[in-house]
């Protein structure tokens, strides 16, 4: 069953086309990686799908709800972990989580239970009462993800989730993302080849706002006639330039 259906989604800024007639669908429980070099249109796509930016043309349906006509309904089934770590620096980790529970209309008891559960899942318990602004980059990113997950979204957008993390923190996050697979629909943007290869069910390669190819890692390698994913990506992107 489709969790996301994107139909000719387009975003133009004056003379620039950031996303060009993107058509794509994502199944429930699938993890789709949007892969591309800088300026490919990945973040703009996420911004449109999460109702932050209005498309110039086209539409997308998340859990059957239109991002153009029913943004409030869409917002109730999604969560976003933005590219930059989006936490309230002056609040403790617990208060940050309470903030998100509150804006989703949860009562105190539900919020407390959710915070206990998500903290255990993401091993945040030890830092719950520390100020978010004092946490290291890795902990802040983990908190940022917990804030995205605590509302129990059906569809989760992770925009460059491991950007700037060290190897161990990245490995921990990968484990956690893997544990989410099948339970929620996840759209992840990245420009790390190994991340897309390790985590995704399918990879959508974008360049200059256009979708070049969407397939499994094996399918992409086969299409490019190579057994190395990075080489396949380079060939496909460079092929589109010619």
């Amino acid at each position: 069953m489709e969790a996301i259906r994107i139909e000719n989604l387009t975003k133009r800024y004056k003379n620039t086309v950031a996303v060009d007639r993107l058509t794509l669908s994502v199944e429930q429980g699938e993890l789709l990686a949007l892969l591309g070099v800088n300026g490919a249109g990945k973040t703009t796509t996420i911004k449109m799908l999460s109702c932050l930016t209005r498309p110039t043309d086209g539409d997308a349906f998340l859990d059957g709800k239109s991002i153009c006509r029913e943004p409030d309904e869409v917002k109730s089934v999604i969560a976003v972990s933005p590219q930059e770590t989006a936490v309230a620096a002056g609040l403790t980790a617990r208060e940050n989580l309470e903030l998100i529970c509150g804006v989703h209309g949860m009562n105190k008891e539900t919020a407390a239970a959710k915070i206990a559960s998500i903290s255990e899942q993401l091993k945040l318990t030890a830092v719950l009462d520390k100020k978010a602004g004092k946490l290291s980059g890795g902990w802040q990113r983990r908190l940022s993800l917990a804030m995205a997950l605590i509302s129990d979204p059906q569809i989760l957008f992770l925009d460059e989730p491991t950007l700037g993390l060290d190897v161990l923190a990245r490995s921990d996050l990968w484990d956690w993302i893997r544990s989410m697979k099948g339970k929620r629909t996840i759209v992840l943007t990245t420009h790390y080849m190994e991340e897309a290869e390790a985590l995704s069910d399918r990879v959508a390669i974008m360049k200059d706002g256009r979708l070049l190819l969407c397939d499994t890692v094996e399918g992409i390698k086969a299409a490019a006639g190579t057994d190395r994913f990075e080489q396949a990506f380079v060939q496909i992107v460079k092929g589109a330039e010619q």
Binding site: D72, P82, T85, V103, S151
Partner: peptide
Amino acid sequence: AKDRGNSLLQRLYTAPLSSVH
């Protein structure tokens, strides 16, 4: 201004909140 700069507002804009909130 800080909330706008560090993406916290972006996160909150994707939550079910209206401009009045």
